[in-house]
């Protein structure tokens, strides 16, 4: 494992923990898109079905289990435990516009036409756009809490670091997976606008707010 891959995983894990702690400590999921979190739960579930079919390493298995469990915990907090604080009125992105096209695409463009492989491909495609309901919510309300901005930054930078990891692997292991690379590029591009705001505002101690 190279440094980019490792930092990417740590960043992803940090994002998940930041979000869990934010909701749990404040007893509120205000400003968080339940739809994005639901999509991430679907992403992890469909991607990590290989937990049952092959073992790679203790690290790999434990990270997968943590990702799946925490995504379900987050969904549970939003739609059940702290349901009263969930801002559903602003969480209006139509997720079928993400799920249906990515599902169709995973049947058309995949490495192998088998159930597990199609589900894995679907999860890669869906992950690349799963943050859109959250970004849509931020743009709709015109602001995000600072802690939510940190969450979004950690989540966005994780896939960016994976891009460097893939360059590394191509260079030194002659390994590359075009499906993951293209989806990773799309995912990173979607965050660019947010990265700009994060660097120019949040890192300078200001709250992330968009011009009206």
């Amino acid at each position: 494992m190279n440094i980019f891959r490792f930092l990417g995983d740590i960043s992803h894990l940090s994002a998940i923990i930041i979000l869990l702690l934010k909701i749990w400590k404040s007893r509120s999921c205000a400003g968080i898109s339940g739809k994005s979190q639901l999509l991430f739960a679907i992403v992890f579930t469909t991607r990590y079905l290989d937990l049952f079919t092959n073992f790679i390493s203790f690290y790999n298995t434990s990270m997968k289990v943590v990702y799946v469990a925490s995504s379900y915990a987050t969904v549970w907090m939003i739609y059940s435990k702290f349901k009263a604080t969930y801002d559903g009125n602003h969480d209006t992105f139509r997720v079928e516009f993400l799920i249906v096209p990515t599902a169709i695409l995973s049947f058309l463009v995949n490495h192998d036409f088998t159930p597990l492989e199609i589900l894995w491909t679907f999860s890669i495609y869906l992950e690349s756009v799963a943050i859109l309901p959250q970004l849509f919510m931020v743009s709709k309300t015109g602001e995000a809490e600072t802690i939510t901005s940190h969450y979004l930054f950690a989540l966005g930078i994780y896939r960016t670091l994976y891009l460097f990891n893939w360059i590394w692997r191509y260079q030194f292991e002659e390994f590359f997976d075009l499906i993951a690379i293209v989806a990773g590029l799309v995912q990173t591009v979607l965050y660019c606008d947010f990265f700009y705001l994060y660097i120019t505002k949040v890192l300078k101690g200001k709250k992330l707010s968009l011009p009206a």
């Binding site: 891959r5 290989d50 390493s57 790999n60 994976y162 990891n165 002659e174 590359f176 997976d177 075009l178």
Partner: peptide, 10 residues
């Protein structure tokens, strides 16, 4: 060469 992913990534 394009290698089918071994799913060793997360």
């Amino acid at each position: 060469h394009a290698v089918h992913i071994a799913h060793d990534e997360l």
